[in-house]
């Protein structure tokens, strides 16, 4: 028996919109800890890891660990039927082949339920090692989104470099080149607008902008984004989900032969 009641249902809507273009089908793993998901895109270049902790739900009942295979496009179709202010409850039975989404309007005058078919998904679970990153950049999520969008009109790849000067985003294309440097900017009264750069050593990595632009679909989930870089690891782009958990996108770098 599974019953998860999320008062801020819009969070689930946003989460699915943020990952559905990257991942087609995924297993949602439900345990006492919370609802989690780990999935790669079809070309295995990017990986998304989601955690919604049990404490973030108003009611959380998960009698035993359960893995539910869902088509994210179908899930999106159903969740789009929920209002932004609706409370969403996810209900399932052990061993059942469907899941039910119940939507309640804030004043309880409209209650809907949508039953969705589950699917069997053969997915590999990858071990993500704890890592010491060379540099961690925290910046406004809207700024990061703007940079990725702007640069993708000029080039296909971006070099992200962190030095003492700041974080630099560089691209090159047929029409020319572009460099955007963001310096550390600790705005005390507006911490969400701060850019904070922690650097253990300088690092420079190349990534496909197409994927970074896809990750920025999570922008509305969090005012800030954290970019963790190490020269020998995929970059981690993390959006925290208020009081509940996170979406982390891992992107494998482009490497010289």
């Amino acid at each position: 028996m599974l019953e998860l009641r999320l008062v801020q249902g819009s969070l689930l809507k946003k989460v699915i919109e943020a990952i559905k273009d990257l991942v087609t089908d995924a297993n949602f793993d439900c345990s006492a800890t919370g609802l989690s998901l780990q999935a790669m895109d079809s070309s295995h270049v990017a990986l998304v890891a989601l955690l919604l902790r049990s404490e973030g739900f108003e009611h959380y009942r998960c009698d035993r660990n359960i893995s539910m295979g869902m088509n994210l496009n179908n899930m999106s179709k159903m969740l789009k039927c929920a209002g932004n202010d609706d409370i969403i409850t996810i209900k399932g039975d052990d061993g059942g082949d469907t899941i039910t989404f119940m939507f309640e309007s804030p004043n309880q005058d409209k209650i809907s339920d949508f039953e969705m078919k589950l699917m069997d998904i053969d997915s590999e679970h990858l071990g993500i090692p704890e890592a010491e990153y060379h540099a961690i950049v925290k910046m406004p999520s809207s700024e990061f989104s703007r940079i990725c969008k702007d640069l993708s009109s000029i080039g296909d790849t971006v070099v992200i470099s962190v030095t003492k000067e700041g974080v630099k985003f560089t691209t090159r294309g047929d029409i020319g080149t572009a460099n955007i440097v963001c310096r550390q900017n600790k705005t005390i009264d507006k911490p969400d607008e701060a850019t904070i750069i922690e650097m253990n050593e300088p690092v420079s990595l190349t990534f496909a902008l197409r994927y970074l632009n896809s990750f920025t679909k999570a922008t509305s989930l969090s005012e800030s984004v954290t970019i963790s870089l190490s020269s020998d690891l995929p970059v981690v782009i993390e959006y925290k989900i208020a009081d509940m958990g996170y979406i982390r996108f891992y992107l494998a770098p482009k490497i010289e032969d």
């Binding site: 270049v45 990017a46 990986l47 590999e124 679970h125 990858l126 995929p234 482009k254 490497i255 032969d257």
Partner: peptide, 14 residues
């Protein structure tokens, strides 16, 4: 130019 690597080059199956 640089070649795209994959996640599985860095993270192993559990």
């Amino acid at each position: 130019g640089p070649k795209q690597s994959t996640i599985t080059k860095f993270f192993g199956k559990v």
